[in-house]
Design a protein around this nucleic acid. Structure first.
Lengths: 341, 341
DNA sequence: CTGAAAGCGCTTACAG
DNA sequence: CTGAAAGCGCTTACAG
């Protein structure tokens, strides 16, 4: 077994309280004594026992606040599943997780949610931030608790970690799959969500770069926005397919609104010859892939994003660490009809 | 906060010791009292506090034994990394993990390792079992500790869990990628490890099924065994390439020995036109994929296999649960040059 | 600046 | 069959 606080106290000839104060930099310890204690701890490779630590800390009523988009969107539901799983685990360590779902991209709403949580005394924050000046400024002001930007990042130099997808690589991967399924020949339509979301743009860029570099006979004809909305997506594609003078036969959905868009494509009798690449999964998506309508979907591990985010904040709290601006990217998965579990 | 043992004791009008005995079925409790305690616990949704539980259990000196292949093989090194990460985490809960690496497929050696660990008093076992009658029989006899077959399964009805790859689906996925990269045309050579390993055969079967069903112009010409050995692999492929009257241009490595085999292929001047699909990754593999020599590799999350296995056994120990024969399959990943982290 | 003591929730000899 | 008490390793008022 590793060395304990009690043993360090014995060696140093001080009380356990003093060792605790020195080890956790709580202040109010004679510098020489502190130095000595740290030295002993280092020599013996002291590592705090997490179980004991958290048991003692249960009295403190610690909590993590989460602000997350929720658009009755399967993707974010899965992120939330991950958050809940982690929350369940750390509940045993006396830490509560409060989830606030907000709709849409209203900066004012998100700002006041941030204030509300901070005022309620949370000890860490996870947020899907709007990439907006005011939000960034507000988050940068908070310097006493760790913060993680979840799934979507914000610009600038700061101490806010990021856990989520590398959208550029995700787009590149989609481009490669488009090239393979089309055998490098065809006319491509890109259906993105909105040009105001950074991640969507990065995907389109990655996709376009690979197509242009590796598949010169695959022509990108047009890019449209569906606002992540199934109905808009349906109507737009219905229209384009009908009046199509560009012979589009390859479709890349860079964001949401896939169900609606694919419905329009399925109503066309050329559908089985179309190449369709999407992002993320849902039960309906899986069916469309297994039946061969959608050729491949590029995934980003939403469950892990939620889970890892909470676990990381938990670590910060337990070790009194702040976040430092680290970026963690989840795996980019490729799902074909054969490799679902 | 959830209800505690102390509170249950108060409500039931008994001591905490008695509550503990009832809740953990340690025996020696008046049936009526036990019934009452269980009832109260259920009503109030009692859940034991893991931190407290394990802190108290540190005195018991619990341990998990691991028997794992080790062939100086990058794949199993990564499994072991996962095991070590989990071991580090559960060390805080006072549980030790002992790893025994064994080489090759010697049934006698594996049997005596099992006996050795059991006699040393382990509380759970993880093993990459040889799929052999004697081994299966020996493992089935052990009915007092949880057991997980790691990465490779054994046949039969038993209480031994499995955590690892679904090799058939892995092979199907490889077949689909071969079809895509070859544009459905070519002559295929399958390089497997050995026909005596169940997983290798399942991969070859999945691969073959997809090729035959979906890519009629892709012809499987031959299947060879390289015994997972780089040198054998090199020599075999060198030979086949040289005297090739079958115009082989597509290669599926169903197991190990990839570095050696690919080296032989790279020495041929048709190499850049070859389609090469492999399994798993390693630093050298990643280079070969990024440079375009290998077109894709099908992965199975070795780190997670090791990590999840130990965590599951930890759960069993903490909750005094046995394994029940459950199968857990890790994700089948597809890696192209674009989607590495 | 420091120590003695109580407490977090659970388990385990020990005594009866 | 049951209770009282000590202990796991750490933290935190409280007193000095």
């Amino acid at each position: 077994m590793a060395i304990t606080i009690k043993e360090i106290a014995n060696i140093a000839g001080v009380s356990r309280g003093t060792v605790d104060r020195a080890l956790n930099a709580r202040g109010g310890v004679n510098p020489e004594v502190e130095e000595k204690i740290l030295q002993i701890a280092k020599e013996h490779g002291y590592k705090p026992n997490l179980a004991a630590k958290s048991l003692a800390m249960t009295q403190q009523n610690l909590s993590i606040g989460v602000i997350i988009y929720s658009e009755n969107n399967q993707f974010f539901e899965t992120v939330i599943d991950g958050i809940n799983e982690a929350a369940e685990e750390i509940k045993e360590f006396g830490i509560t997780v409060t989830i606030c779902k907000i709709n849409g991209f209203d900066v004012g709403k998100q700002l006041s949610k941030i204030d509300e949580l901070i005022n309620s005394g949370i000890n860490a924050l996870a947020i899907t931030p709007i990439n907006d000046e005011k939000i960034i400024k507000r988050l940068e002001e908070i310097d006493d608790i760790p913060i993680i930007a979840l799934n979507t990042d914000i610009e600038g130099e700061h101490n806010i970690d990021y856990i989520g997808c590398d959208y550029y690589k995700s787009g590149q991967t989609a481009g490669a799959m488009m090239g393979l399924f089309s055998k490098g020949m065809g006319n491509v339509l890109i259906i993105t969500g909105t040009h105001t979301v950074y991640g969507h743009n990065r995907r389109v860029k990655g996709f376009t770069d690979v197509i242009q570099k590796e598949y010169p006979s695959l022509l990108i004809k047009q890019t449209i926005e569906n606002n992540d909305d199934d109905e808009i997506s349906y109507n737009l594609l219905k229209e384009i397919i009908k009046s199509d003078n560009k012979n589009i036969d390859c479709f890349y959905f860079a964001a949401a609104g896939v169900d609606g868009g694919v419905k329009a494509l399925m109503e066309d009798n050329r559908c089985k010859d179309f190449v369709i690449i999407t992002n993320d999964t849902s039960p309906s998506r899986i069916e469309l892939i297994k039946s061969g309508i959608i050729n491949a979907t590029i995934c980003q591990q939403p469950f892990e994003q939620g889970y890892n985010c909470i676990k990381e904040l938990f670590n910060c709290i337990m070790n009194k660490k702040m976040t430092t601006g680290k970026k963690s990217y989840t795996n980019i998965g490729i799902k074909l009809k054969y490799n679902f579990n």
